[in-house]
């Protein structure tokens, strides 16, 4: 078990090295990717800035700086997810409809691991600089104190957030084993990520319930942010974050494994 884990870890670095080499080949693409990555973050930033053009405005008593903090935080888990899980988007088309999954199944490695490692978008991480800048600005305005402990919790929580996204999208990608479709449910769920950028309290009961217990995007950015914003109202949910992350990834992997048993090659 442990040996198998280290074998995967070892190969992960080999995959990454290989990937970096191919990526450096197309320099123009890489630069383009970096620029669009930054633009992507700036758009929501501008949106929030314009939304709060009047000083006194709040969103359900959340001030502009607080909303900015939540948004800045949300960039980290999302970019980690974009960097390490982008291939989930191709599972339906590239692996199932076109039959590339055959190749994956022939190797004595975890199938999900292989699919994930075949495409890594390191350049997505560039957005974190924007996220970091936003958090620094908001922390300054709100006079938030950062300690080593808080930094460690921050790192832990952004990784948890990545796994919440990872679990949900692994499950959705695995649905393609039963109903092959090119993009399928991926697109609306990608759009649902937007819900997680804002305080979950602004939505109605039904949406709140969905965002907390069915597609737990509220645990990715909003609940962790409340910890750093020193809000005690959601303390119980903050404690739940690692459990939700573990649960999400476990459910995702179970559905994935069930799906792989259901895989039928395209046969050509």
């Amino acid at each position: 078990m442990i040996r198998r884990f280290f074998l995967h870890l070892d190969l992960a670095f080999a995959y990454l090295a290989q990937f970096m080499k191919t990526r450096m080949e197309y320099k123009a693409d890489l630069i383009l990717g970096l620029v669009t990555g930054l633009l992507f973050q700036l758009i929501t930033l501008v949106f929030i800035d314009v939304l709060f053009a009047k000083q006194s405005i709040t969103i359900n008593f959340w001030t502009k700086e607080q909303i900015l903090f939540i948004y800045g935080f949300s960039i980290f888990p999302l970019n980690l997810f974009f960097a390490f899980f982008p291939n989930l988007y191709n599972v339906g088309s590239l692996y199932i409809i076109e039959g590339n999954f055959d190749r994956i199944l022939l190797r004595p490695l975890n199938s999900l691991f292989q699919v994930l490692m075949e495409k890594v978008d390191i350049e997505s991480l560039i957005g974190m600089f924007v996220g970091g800048a936003i958090i620094c600005y908001a922390s300054g305005e709100l006079q938030l104190e950062w300690t080593i402990l808080r930094l460690i919790i921050f790192l832990l929580m952004i990784v948890c957030g990545m796994f919440i996204y990872g679990g949900v999208f692994t499950a959705v990608a695995a649905f393609s084993f039963w109903w092959p479709d090119r993009v399928g449910l991926m697109a609306p769920l990608f759009n649902m990520i937007t819900f997680g950028k804002y305080p979950v309290t602004i939505y109605n009961r039904l949406l709140q319930y969905i965002l907390m217990w069915i597609i737990p995007f509220a645990f990715v950015a909003f609940f962790p942010s409340t910890y750093f914003l020193n809000s005690t109202e959601f303390r119980n949910y903050v404690v739940l974050i690692p459990i939700v992350a573990l649960g999400s990834m476990t459910v995702g992997m179970i559905i994935w494994n069930l799906g792989t048993h259901h895989y039928e090659s395209t046969g050509s």
Partner: peptide, 17 residues
């Protein structure tokens, strides 16, 4: 989904004014 996000966001924005 898109309409809902912005609906709730604007609704929350207008809660005081």
């Amino acid at each position: 989904i898109h309409v809902s996000v912005y609906y709730f966001l604007y609704k929350a924005l207008y809660h005081q004014s």
